[in-house]
Amino acid sequence: MNRFVPSNLVVLRRDVLCAASALLEEQVRASQAFSAIAKTLHRVHGELANSLAELAGRADADLTVRQLARRCQTLRTTLALVEQHYQADVVRQRDALRALLAAFNESSKVLAQTLVEKDLLDRHRMVLERVVLSYERVINWLPFIEEVLKEFHAIFPFDLFFVAFAEKHGLTAHLFYPGRPTAAQRSDLEPQLVRELLARLNQPFDAAVDLAVHYLDWTPWFGIATAQCYQLLTEKVPDHRSGLAGILGVGFGSPHARVRDRSQRTAPACV
């Protein structure tokens, strides 16, 4: 779970996973205890059954002893059946709990991601539109954008904001980092970002890109270090309103990113 996920969902996920895991652990322990007891039962019962069988085999053995020996043998078979049935149940329940853990974990991750994306897109659509629509209308565009992003960052602490426009000479992309990432962090992140932007704008992968990087110095850099940890949320610029073909979006760190399919994490949607 990352810092953008609602805390009640984090708590719910933790509680459910811990409860199911605890059940599994208790079951393992109970199964081991049962196996140990069953082993002792088999041994002691076997000794009794053998003694009775020996007594019943004597020529002078009375009917009661013979009947007891037979019942003892039946009990031995029954005990084996009980244990077999119990252990089969244990395996079924263990498999069910494992499946439940896996399914719930995956569902909670997907739900968390969906909530983050919905929250971002719903609450900040107007902010994003202000950025886009001001591009060719506001003379001091950069100071204006930085002010907008300051407001945006207070509500949604993104690690990277970008806006890119496909213009006649190629792609113009503005990157805004809250704080100052290292050169190594930038060189890890930016090539991937450019690839995604070009792909989203249906541009050739080797199209010219004019990259302008801006640092928002009113906050330190808190971003996660590698591109593999980033999730990007993108919005196509509404070209019917701006006359520009473009894209904008935010990047933010997530520990899940390395184990999840990227295609499931980008959620393009038109404004």
């Binding site: 996920r13 996973l17 895991s21 652990e25 974990n105 184990v259």
Partner: peptide, 28 residues
Amino acid sequence: REEGVLLDPGGFGVMPDVLEAMLDYCTP
């Protein structure tokens, strides 16, 4: 990459919390 190693996973009763934390990164 996609392979995990657990070091000293803990005593009885600790597993649920550790598993929940581990699932943030990888599957069993």
